[in-house]
Amino acid sequence: MSYLSHFFESLLSTLHDVLPIAIILFFFQLAILRKRILNLRQILIGFVFVLLGLAFFLEGLEQALFPLGKLMAEQLTASDFLGITEDSLGNWSNYLWVYVFAFAIGFSTTIAEPSLIAVAIKANQVSGGAIGTWGLRIAVAIGVAVGISLGAYRIVTGTPLHYYIIVGYVLVVIQTLYCPKSIIALAYDSGGVTTSTVTVPLVAALGLGLASNIPGRNPLLDGFGLIAFASLFPIMSVMGYAQLSEWRAQRDKRSRSENVRS
């Protein structure tokens, strides 16, 4: 019974998310465009699928994966688990498992992120298959993984957030100059889509756990910032992925033309 009522709560909150969007869409469609919607039935069915799907998805996450993931983040950051004594306090190398966990959780939650799947499907369609859905998603996931581990390292060492972010932006700008033009928009977009339903709660729990277990860190101030890292690094990794594929394509072409000549 409690399962059921909890599920209805999830359904209601999803409805609350979908409703404003549906109202805006239908208002503009009917009042401004004044056009009948093609395949109205199919689109409404699609909305129902999205609504139910998101409700199930969130319900399952909240029932199973989030409690365990949050518990693990707390346990992994506790000082008795890491074997931290008074003398070695604040020594960043003691937190090795935290970085490994940050990397793994960043990677795996990004692979499951529904909005990233959506963007990957579209990118694959638009590029005529040149951009593989899995290639893009793995590139983004690696970026998030690196970003979250670095963010965890920053909380452990207590260095100011904006140094990292500013250096990151400078790197992004330099990379933009050298990467294939066709990927730039997609790379910038992938920074924003990585952090939603699955990643944010787990990553926030990790940041909060770390900041409250390390003396001298203020959970309110230092717990923030992990999401910023998770949105910055995918931009670099996606551009890197494009540069790598371009480089490989050129190398293949070169070796092929050499074969022809010989």
Binding site: I43, F47, L52, G53, I121
Partner: peptide, 12 residues
């Protein structure tokens, strides 16, 4: 949920 969502995405 993910299966339903992706399907709804494509048709809706």
């Amino acid at each position: 949920g993910l299966t339903l969502f992706i399907h709804g995405l494509k048709v809706g």
